[in-house]
């Protein structure tokens, strides 16, 4: 079956942070703009809109993706996780806590995307070392931290997760 949107408006049901969300958007609406403007999940930031800076990174079916390079319509049928879904209202996740403890952020604009990438990395490689962390982070631009304390925070989260019972 082909779904075509000859009309100007698409009614979408998206699974975002475990909740079914309804949104009506133009077909050209990017996932990032849909999350931000329709679902009011403004923790996902736009830094370049051409897929380089990584600020808009979210998880789609558990894998990182630039939400500026996806159409909202493409996320139908996928599980989308944003920064708001990391710890919700509860205690900070070890990764977030490590960022707080190790001064892993300054202006905080690139931070949500960075946290999504590191969430994926630490899930796939719970023993990630500095090289693996730097490699994963190379898909993000940060102008404040020089990356150093982001790396330190990620290493500290690895340690914390390892020690967890």
């Amino acid at each position: 079956m082909t779904t075509s949107s000859e009309s100007n408006a698409l009614s979408l049901t998206l699974d975002v942070n475990g909740k079914a969300c309804e949104a009506t958007v133009e077909p050209r609406t990017t996932l990032a703009d849909c999350l931000r403007n329709e679902l009011h999940l403004t923790g996902t930031h736009l830094g370049c809109e051409h897929g380089v800076c990584g600020a808009c990174t979210v998880l789609v079916d558990g894998r990182t993706a630039r939400s500026c390079l996806m159409l909202a319509a493409q996320a139908e049928g996928c599980r989308v996780t944003t920064i708001e879904g990391l710890s919700g209202e509860g205690e900070l996740e070890p990764l977030q806590q490590a960022f707080w403890d190790r001064h892993g952020l300054q202006c905080g604009f690139c931070t949500p995307g960075v946290l999504m990438t590191l969430t994926e990395l630490l899930r796939d490689e719970p023993n990630a070392n500095e090289d693996a962390i730097r490699l994963a982070l190379s898909g993000h631009l940060c102008r404040c931290t020089g990356y150093q304390n982001i790396v330190a925070a990620a290493l500290s989260a690895v340690e914390c997760i390892r020690r967890r019972p």
Partner: peptide, 21 residues
């Protein structure tokens, strides 16, 4: 000291100008 700015930002609850509605 850990920064008082951070918990909000780490949860995606920062409020940047693009977030003003």
């Amino acid at each position: 000291a850990r920064r008082i700015e951070d918990p909000r930002l780490l949860r995606g609850r920062g409020r940047f100008v693009a977030d003003v509605e």
